[in-house]
Write a protein that binds this DNA or RNA. Structure first.
Lengths: 185, 185
DNA sequence: TTTAAAACGTACAGACTTGTCTGTTTTCTG
DNA sequence: CAGAAAACAGACAAGTCTGTACGTTTTAAA
């Protein structure tokens, strides 16, 4: 079997370690060991550890949005699809032992100067908010303030992910879905 | 002015650094420098860095609950008080540049074996959920499932805190309050 | 005043951190 | 086949990390 190229192996290894062990718990030596590349190669592909994290987040976001969109594609467009986001979260998070969101987990504890990471996280969250707003605008009545409701649903999503990680249980996801349903009535 | 005792100075310094800089960005040397104590003294009071974090979280929770309870005491007991939690969050978080919740920030990225920290975080969150439930039970009609609604409000709280830190803005807090008001109708 | 307790200053230990560098090897391309 | 590119192995640098230890000083208590 053809070995993945060096750059992809680095991102793949880093993604796994950053997400499951934590960004700060993951050193460069752990990454190169798991990726089976040399340190010099790694630094020829990425300027710094922060640069690796930025690519990790960007790729993670793309993959996540794609996975979620695929999951939701069997649902009718609009409000039902938005409600089903919580089913998707439940499906995904139960598979990773409620380890939570890679973006939330990284932004809470990084060196002050690693602003690229903050920018990427913010951008990806904006993207998700836009997704919700677009879906709501497909089926909502003119009288509904979809902008406002999108913000509320976004807060539910972020909270459900964080709280399910803290409690290592799915009840926050279930509660969030119910709240979402009632907010959309 | 009488200098605070050693133990309190350690916790005070550690609390500031853990919260604003991050648990992983804070080394033992930073703590003892800020606290103006020797390393040996520090280790005579606390078995480990993790032990310091546990005390930090416990004391932070007590202070936070007290501060919040004082803030809310001008509100009538029950639902209005629960809704006003979001005003309190806004008041507090705008003062700390939306740095978020010390508990969320620490639980996302710690060494796997530091279970004491996870236990304390979980316990404090359970405490907060109980506070919400108790308040709701003061004024809610018998037909309201206060247990369910408490869970939903708890999710809103956690989400608003996390999202306002990501975005460095208060709109998630405002949105969460509105969602809370509508859920309580 | 004396003794004990508490605290200090700092060296030390061993491990880990990010990042750089150099000679060598392997792979790719013309 | 030869040369360039890519990758490698691993030493090195300088710093930081948590935690221990020891002789000394300061403070508290009897």
């Amino acid at each position: 079997m053809i070995k993945e190229n060096v750059k992809d192996r680095i991102i793949s290894a880093a993604s796994e370690l950053f997400y499951f062990d934590g960004y700060n718990q993951t050193g460069i030596n752990k990454i190169i060991e798991k990726a089976e590349v040399s340190k010099d190669s790694m630094y020829r592909h990425f300027r710094s550890k922060e640069a690796i994290a930025v690519v990790y987040l960007e790729q993670r976001h793309k993959a996540w949005i794609t996975d979620m969109t695929n999951y939701l594609s069997v649902k009718p467009a609009g409000q039902e699809r938005v409600i089903a986001i919580f089913d998707y979260l439940n499906h995904w998070l139960s598979q990773v032992d409620y380890r939570g969101c890679g973006f939330q987990n990284i932004i809470t504890d990084i060196p002050k100067n690693q602003n690229s990471i903050k920018e990427v996280v913010r951008k990806c969250k904006d993207d998700m908010l836009r997704f919700i707003l677009d879906e709501l605008n497909k089926t909502s009545s003119e009288s509904m303030d979809t902008k406002e409701i999108s913000n509320e649903i976004m807060v539910l999503i972020e909270g459900a992910i964080m709280l399910s990680q803290i409690q290592k249980a799915n009840w926050p996801l279930v509660a969030a879905k119910k709240a979402c349903e009632r907010l959309l009535k």
